[in-house]
Amino acid sequence: MRLRPGSEELAPVSARFPAATTATVAGTALHSRRRRRSWHRRALPVAAPYALLLPTAGVIAAVLGYPLYLLVKLSFQKYGLFELVRHKGHYIGTANYARILHDSQFWTVLGRTVLFTAVNVALTLVLGTAIALLLVRLGRFMRVVLTTGLVLVWATPVVVAVDLWRWMVDYEFGVANWTLTKLHFGNFLHHDWFANPWTGFGVITALIVWGAIPFVTITVYAGLSQVPQELIEAAQIDGATSLGVFREITLPLLKPIFVILASLSIIWDFQVFNQIWIMLDERPTSDYFLMSIYSFVESFRISEYGLGSAIAVVMVLFMLGITFVYVRQMVRIGEVQ
């Protein structure tokens, strides 16, 4: 049993910011590894970690692994209502894939989903970080108040959030239309935000970003409060502006946090379903299809489970493609942390 040459042995700050102290980490880790290896080997049987992982691995394999396999299998089958009743699909090769790849709707939906994800992730990260930087500059009282407010938003269940945003932008009695009209942005009385998909997606984006900001802000703030004060002061003595400090010190130190936040945001936003489904009364028009809605409608509304599965497989592959780099980087962080 080897001891992981991890950073548990190090002071908390350098542990969280591996990039800042790579040289020292290497040095210290070497020393402590030699000293502690024997201690570990004596104390622990080799099989222990595997036994500890077994239950989790079992559940994941059964409820995730097998269905994933089944999903791929279904995507090569004709599986409609008839097959659902018979509990048996009918192999048709790559016909499902051929059908969606030659369907212009599929490409529209894919493009729309990518654009939607990019906009939502960017807005969430930028606004979330901006508010975190604001938090750092506040006095204790204001900071606690703002944090509490953010936590309140964070804790609001998504389904609840969708309903209350739906209420705010209601075409007849919604507070948004009245306010915008009063602020002279134009006549919004009886304005239906969802008649035009662009404004409809605008509302949905606002809702998603609003709900996602607290997590980003609080995580980034936690990271910011770990940045060594000496570094910042040293830079300021050298004449760095606050923008310079942010770019040269804060950003590189917080890079691991940003990588994690960005990857999680991409994962969440690429598969957005509830917000659109509930916002549009469970009957979204095809203008509002993102990948997950598209796949769901093909399966559960049109009962083309095979076709829906093929769309879902493409969605899974696409997400893996996007996030492959992130996984690698996260593993790297995991190794060091």
Binding site: L68, L71, I267, Q271, F296, S309, M319
Partner: peptide
């Protein structure tokens, strides 16, 4: 964590 739930709902 990246596997979309919506995809797994079908199988």
């Amino acid at each position: 964590q990246m596997v979309p739930l919506n995809a797994l709902v079908i199988p």
